[in-house]
Write a protein that binds this DNA or RNA. Structure first.
Lengths: 252, 252
DNA sequence: ACAAAAGTGTTTTTTATACACCCATGC
DNA sequence: GCATGGGTGTATAAAAAACACTTTTGT
């Protein structure tokens, strides 16, 4: 309810009423970090058990608030490096979530600081990544197919990240940023199967399509994986891929 | 240079050194608003001449700072509605630019407030949009092919928006959100030509592909556009499109 | 009649899909 | 020998691309 004196004050300065105040923000970065467990054919996402309120003891995406002078992408790299050690990774910005009230620390009508989340999605190699362990078991890879209820709007962020991952895999060579320098075609195939599902393509058709694109070079070396004929080791040829950059490729 | 006393203070609280301070942000929304001038076959982008420092008198994307309690998308709608009046539009979030120093108002080493820009891209119908004029000529549609040097990092944002627009047009039915309720197939074709370039597809192949998708219904009405055989008016059938949603469609 | 725009159909080429089958190795 | 995974090829179906041709209007 407005008192008369308040109305008088307002009438002196109309623009004060009409022009709303600007919001002050803290900006967080939340990472959807995927990895492919080729042994068990599972797509995994890295989750952290929260140690603080709000949502204490609930699983969440690894996130951090952006520091003074820190670029957004660097913040994403920092939180990733704090949790796992990897050599190769793919990282790109996903989406920005900024609805008022997405963080309970913003009191509904307090008009205090807002929490905005710039999300990033990353793909790392499971076999190569070492979790930076903590005393208690508060960090773990979860199969994407059965993630629990997450803190904040993190389930929404994760779903969007999963969607983007599937698209990226079909149209960009991000798989090769995550595979070791030398790999067999079957390793590529397994990675695609795990992310996109079993029925996305037949192996022999996948092979010929991929080779016809012309940016995989056969090293001539062979490697034995248990029983069966030894497989050729291939290498991603960045130079040969260069002209294909920016073109709409389909890797299926 | 550190004095001895400072070092003593620091040694009491290591975390003060290690943990950097959080950045405080103002969040802006910048819109890349496209329209298609079908008369002259040009893709246009809406630009504003800045009235304030920094970059005074330079062209820029229409933007605004986010207010207290205001969702990001609502801020995007607000700034759009302030500049043009439209009935139909397509609007989606583009990318978030947040490098330190992207706004000169952040003094390089001041560690003051940072300016983050969440960009949106919009497609509106040129014929239907009315610019909300100002005394001086400080708002105008510019052909995308020849935009001047823009304020801030707005050229970068525009380029990214243009890239996204072309992709969206190929994979989503956003054209129909911008066309009138009833339209001829040639109008659709012209829109695609203007955005994607002349050589993207032959008209008759475009026709058959589009009709085979099955979500355009012939109203039976004919319309004459100057000389030549009268064209059928079509309607976008949202119900028929429903099952195709989320599927990777190609409209080329 | 003729130009202009709408609309249909046909031919050719390329790509996708589904398999069948041979090859090299471990056990 | 035979199971296992690696690798090649072929037959069929579908889609993309190029373009010839018919229809209906204005002038």
């Amino acid at each position: 309810m407005k008192t008369n004196s308040e109305i008088n004050i307002e009438s002196r300065d109309q623009s004060y009423l009409v022009k709303k105040k600007l919001a002050d923000f803290k900006v967080g970065v939340d990472n959807v970090i995927f990895s492919v467990d080729t042994k068990h054919n599972r797509l995994l996402v890295l989750l952290l058990k929260r140690k603080d309120e709000p949502f204490i003891a609930q699983w969440s995406l690894p996130g951090t608030l952006v520091r003074q002078g820190e670029p957004l992408k660097e913040a994403a790299h920092r939180i990733l490096a704090e949790k796992i050690a990897v050599n190769n990774l793919y990282l790109e910005q996903l989406y920005t979530f900024g609805e008022p009230g997405r963080d309970p620390r913003e009191a509904p009508e307090s008009f205090g600081v807002r929490y905005l989340s710039v999300s990033y999605f990353a793909l790392v190699r499971y076999e190569e990544s070492a979790l930076i362990a903590r005393p208690t078991n508060n960090i773990a890879w979860h199969p994407v197919k059965k993630v629990p209820n997450l803190a904040f709007d993190h389930n929404q962020i994760l779903n969007y990240g999963y969607h983007r991952l599937k698209n990226k895999l079909e149209y960009s060579p991000i798989a090769f940023e995550v595979l070791p320098d030398e790999f067999t075609l079957n390793e590529v195939y397994q990675l695609y199967c795990t992310v996109l599902g079993e029925n996305f393509s037949d192996y022999s058709n996948f092979r010929s399509k991929l080779l016809k694109l012309g940016f995989l070079s056969d090293t001539g070396e062979k490697v034995c994986r248990g029983a069966g004929r030894p497989a050729s080791l291939y290498r991603f040829d960045a130079e040969a891929f260069e002209p294909l950059k920016d073109k709409p490729l389909v890797f299926i």
